[in-house]
Design a protein around this nucleic acid. Sequence first.
DNA 1: TCTGGGGTCCTAGGACCC
DNA 2: TCTGGGGTCCTAGGACCC
Length: 417
Amino acid sequence: MSDPGSNMCSMSPPPAPPVAGILHADLDAFYASVEQRDDPRLRRRPVAVGGGVVLAASYEAKRRGVRTAMSVRQARSLCPGLVVVRPRFEAYTAASRAVFAIFRDTTPAVQGVSIDEAFLDVRGLHRIDAAPVLIGGRVRDRVRDEVGLPITVGVARTPFLAKVASRVAKPDGLLLVDPDHEDAFLHPLPLEVLWGVGAVTADRLHAFGLTTAGDVAALPRSVLEHALGPAMGRHLHAVVHGRTPDRVDTGRRRGSVGAQRALGRGPHDPAQVRAALLGLVDRVCRRLRAGHRLARTVVLRLRFADYTTATRSRSFAFATASGAQIGAAAVALLAAAAPLLRERGITLVGVALAGLEPDDHWQPELDLEGAAPAGLDAAVDAVADRFGSRALVRGALLRHGSGLEVPTLPDDPEEPA
DNA sequence: TCTGGGGTCCTAGGACCC
DNA sequence: TCTGGGGTCCTAGGACCC
C-alpha cells in the first residue's frame, strides 16, 4: 500500500525541543490556610478543619502526624494543642474563585483539577511574556498578595510531571523539572509520589521489592501489566518513562453529580433512611438543573457497619432531571436492597446521577412558590395562561422536578414509560 | 487507620444485536 | 441447528484522587 504522506516526513522541520511549559498550581493545606488567613489567632498554630473527621490540616498539624481523613479524636491525641475549627465552605468557594481568576488572567488554557488545584498551559506565552518558571513565580506572588494564601507551583513538560513536581516542592514552593533531566528527577523518588499509585498498588509493588520510580522503570511493560492489570500496568509504564500527554484538557464537563450522608452507627429506621435519601435526591436534582443537565442513570450508594459498601443502579430510557422520577427510582433501589440493610446495618446512604447530558430544552424555573399540591391545578392554569399550554407547563414541572405531586391533566399526552 | 463528602476511571460478566 | 467474532449497553465493584 503506497502512502504518499510518508515521503513528506523527511521534508517536515525537525521537532521543536521540548519545553517545560505546564504549571501545576496547588494551594497548600487549602481549608486550613483560609482559616489561618481569616483568624490571626490560628496562625503558626496546629489547625485542623473538620467535624468528626479531619478535612484539612495546617502544616503545623501535619508535622505532628495529623492527616486528612483521620478522626478528630485521633488527631487530638497525636497533637494535644490542636485547634479544630468547623468548615466554612462558602469561604473556601470564594477563595477558590479568586485564585482561579488569577489563573485565567495568566493564560486561557486552564484545567481545573479540584477546588484547590489546576493545570496551566503557558507554553505559548514565553515569547511575548516570560519563561514558564517566571510565570509560575508570578502566580505564586499574586495568589499570596491578592488572596492571602500560600500556593505551590510545579513546572514541567507534562501535566503529570508538573503534578509530581508540586508534590515534591510543597509547601509554599516552586520547582522546575528540566525536560533534559526528567528521569534524574523522577527515578529516585519513592513510588508513592506517582499520581495514580495509591495504597493498594504501592503495596503490590512493594511486595515485588520495588520502592522507587526507578525500580518500576527497570521493569518491562508486560511484567507491570501482568502484576497490576492492563490499564494500570500501561499507565505506570508510561509514567515512569515520561510518556504521558503534554497537553492540558480544558473542555471537560462533570460526568456525574452525587450527594451522600453518614448516618452514624445504627440501628436506623427504614423510614428515616428513606427520608434521608429523598433529601439527597432533592439536592443532586437541584445541582443537575442548575447545570442545565439531564441524567440517564441513578446510583444508590450504601455503606455498612463493617465498612463494606454496595451500589445499586438503574438507567432510564430517556435522560431526566425530574425529582419525582429520580426519587422514585432511588426509593425502589433502596427497597430492593432492604435485606442487605437488615443484615449488615446501614451507616451511610448516597445517591449519584451519571450519564449526564446537556438539557437542550432547558427553561428558567417556573415560579410556583407556595403552590400547595392541592392548589397545583389552579397554579398550573395560572402559569399556562402565560405559556399557552398546560402540557408544556406540566412538562416543565416534571423535567425540573418541583418535588410536588403533579396530577395528570386531561389534555396531557400519554405518560412516557 | 475504626473512617466525610465530592468526584474519576477501570474491570468484568451478561444481555443483546449484527 | 450449530457456530464465530465484534460491538454496545447495563450493572456492580474497586482503586484512586482531593
